[in-house]
Amino acid sequence: DYYEVLGLQRYASPEDIKKAYHKVALKWHPDKNPENKEEAERKFKEVAEAYEVLSNDEKRDIYD
């Protein structure tokens, strides 16, 4: 669930989505996790995908 990936509720505002994305993206950035790079890359891609969908009103409506 994209909301879960970003740690958000379904009623999150666009500002909340952006803030959550930056927080979680920093947490899972591969450069910040050199000891667990493969998992970090996978999680970072999930976070980016979730943000791409939830930050676009049209894609978010379809997802919801």
Rank of each mutant, 00 (worst) to 15 (best):
H22M: 12
A48E: 15
W28C: 13
I17C: 00
L26W: 07
P34K: 15
K43Q: 07
K27W: 02
H29I: 04
D1T: 14
E58I: 10
D61G: 14
P30K: 05
V53M: 08
A12H: 03
D1I: 01
Y51N: 02
E35S: 11
Y3P: 01
Y63C: 04
Q9W: 01
K23F: 09
E15K: 05
K19T: 14
K19P: 03
D57G: 13
E49R: 07
E15Y: 03
K19V: 13
Y51P: 02
K45D: 06
K23W: 05
E15F: 02
P34I: 09
E49Q: 09
A40T: 07
L8F: 00
S13P: 09
E49K: 15
D16C: 04
Y11P: 15
D16E: 11
K23T: 15
L54R: 01
Q9I: 00
I62A: 15
E4W: 05
E41H: 10
G7M: 01
P14H: 11
L8K: 02
E39F: 01
Y2G: 03
D57H: 09
K32W: 04
D61I: 15
E38H: 08
P34V: 10
A40R: 07
V5Y: 01
L6M: 09
N33M: 07
D31F: 01
L26I: 10
E49C: 06
N36W: 02
K27H: 10
E4C: 13
Y51F: 14
E52S: 13
S55L: 09
S13K: 11
P30F: 04
E41K: 12
Y21D: 03
Q9P: 13
G7K: 06
L6K: 01
D1N: 15
E46L: 13
L6C: 01
K32I: 05
L8H: 01
P30L: 06
E46T: 05
V53T: 15
L6E: 01
V24G: 14
V47E: 01
E41S: 12
S55G: 15
E4D: 10
Y63I: 06
I17W: 01
R42K: 06
K45P: 02
Y21A: 05
F44W: 15
P14Y: 13
P30R: 05
D31G: 08
V5L: 11
Y11R: 13
D57I: 08
A20T: 01
Y63G: 09
H22Y: 07
R42D: 06
Y51V: 01
V53S: 03
N33I: 04
A20S: 06
L8P: 00
H22C: 12
F44R: 10
